[in-house]
């Protein structure tokens, strides 16, 4: 047993042997345990998404809840996937950056388009997390003020300093979203 397994072997799994996780509309039944395709009790959600399901669009930077790079939507709200254990996500619905496009038409989410139009990225490493946090904001508040955008994104680290373009992109997407309603 590795150290992490020992640490988490006390988590009550309530006799469960698998978890159900819906990611981007697709249901995954994942066995709990060790080995390929399984979910270790110590696996974080970001690990499961990236390493087990191959959804590498979600990025990990600090791996400790400080930077927002790993932000995904869980039941519509922004969460830090590096701070959640996958076994705690049983029955949840997760959306990652890969799932933002319209599944039928393949059309980009207006936020994604707006990030492109404003070149709201430099290295692009923080961008998936930025877009997911912005998405959660607009879900909640379709026409935020600039201050509200800044507040909502203040947990997202961007070292290249793309903040200014990101604020423009989110405001613009919000404006277009409201106009098209």
């Amino acid at each position: 047993m590795t150290r992490q397994e020992k640490k988490f072997s006390g988590v009550a799994l309530e006799g469960k042997h698998r978890i159900n996780l819906t990611v981007n509309g697709q249901l995954y039944e994942l066995a709990i345990g060790r080995g390929a395709g399984k979910v270790n009790p110590s696996d974080t959600l970001s690990f499961t998404l990236r390493e087990t399901l191959g959804l590498t669009g979600t990025k990990v930077s600090c791996d400790s809840g400080a930077c927002g790079a790993c932000t995904v939507l869980m039941d519509g709200r922004a969460v830090l996937s590096c701070m959640m254990l996958s076994i705690e996500c049983d029955g949840k619905e997760v959306t990652t950056i890969e799932g933002l496009k319209d599944p039928k038409t393949g059309e980009l989410d207006p936020l994604q388009q707006s990030f492109i139009d404003h070149t709201a990225f430099q290295c692009g490493f923080c961008t998936p997390g930025m877009i997911m946090s912005s998405k959660a904001l607009l879900n909640d508040n379709p026409s935020p003020t600039e201050e509200e955008v800044k507040e909502a994104l203040s947990g997202n680290f961007c070292r290249c300093i793309t903040h200014y373009h990101v604020v423009d992109a989110v405001m613009d997407a919000a404006k277009k979203g409201v106009e098209s309603k």
């Binding site: 890969e98 980009l108 990030f115």
Partner: peptide, 13 residues
């Protein structure tokens, strides 16, 4: 548009 823009905003980069 940056050539890698689509990849960056869709998580494919």
């Amino acid at each position: 548009q940056r050539k890698d823009a689509l990849d960056i905003v869709t998580g494919k980069a």
